[in-house]
């Protein structure tokens, strides 16, 4: 996963072993939306990590742009069954954002502008596996794909990669988010096909 085979991009191919079970390959980038697209003025945009002791760590857009960024190339898998391989992003690693955050929490509840939430274990946000991404395919991230910035956690189903991310609340308990409280899986590993509660 996350490894691009040179030369195959753009060439139609049937589902192969690089796709998780039940997924099909798509070349375009479907837009999924559970509500209106929030437009946040950049001078008011902020990203906030809140610890279990209510300590807040804040970044303005200028702060975020000043941090070192990564350019990951990753495969993404939507629970509605499309997968897109070899997508290229730019963003700040959660390892960077968490480096000064003192926490004993095990779980994270991600919050978005517009009210969306999603939950996952904090460890899945660390070790180079998650980013606050603000560029896709060489361009600024379009609002319909979650711009100005979205979470990118490509090893889990893409509903965990919250669009329009505004913050992360660190918690001792695994509070179900927007889809997780309505039947979707709390973890959502595409390789184990964890789509729904009980999978």
């Amino acid at each position: 996963m996350g490894i691009v085979t040179p030369g195959f991009r753009g060439r139609p191919r049937p589902s192969g072993p690089e796709l998780p079970p039940g997924q099909y390959l798509t070349e375009d980038f479907p837009v999924l939306s559970a509500g209106p697209t929030p437009r946040v003025p950049m001078d008011r945009w902020e990203f906030v990590i809140t610890t279990e002791t209510s300590r807040e760590h804040r970044w303005s857009w200028t702060d975020l742009m000043a941090l070192p960024s990564d350019t990951p190339t990753v495969d993404i898998h939507c629970v509605t069954k499309w997968s897109k391989l070899g997508t290229t992003w730019q963003g700040v690693s959660l390892d960077t954002l968490m480096s000064d955050v003192d926490t004993a929490a095990d779980y994270a509840l991600v919050h978005s502008y517009g009210g969306y939430t999603t939950n996952l274990p904090l460890s899945d946000l660390l070790d180079g596996r998650a980013w606050v991404a603000y560029r896709f395919d060489g361009d600024d991230l379009h609002p319909e794909h979650g711009g100005p910035a979205r979470l990118l956690v490509p090893h889990l189903y893409f509903w965990k990669s919250a669009k329009w991310v505004r913050g992360i609340q660190l918690r001792f308990d695994d509070e179900p988010g927007f889809w997780e409280s309505a039947g979707y899986h709390d973890y959502g590993d595409p390789w184990r096909e964890q789509r729904y509660q009980g999978d």
Binding site: S33, G35, W179
Partner: peptide
């Protein structure tokens, strides 16, 4: 166009109803 259907209030756009079919 989402993992389920989300019905929002036409007045305030908050979620009134969500439905997921497994």
């Amino acid at each position: 166009s989402a993992p389920g259907m989300v019905a929002r209030c036409p007045s305030c756009e908050e979620v009134v109803l969500r439905m997921v079919r497994t």
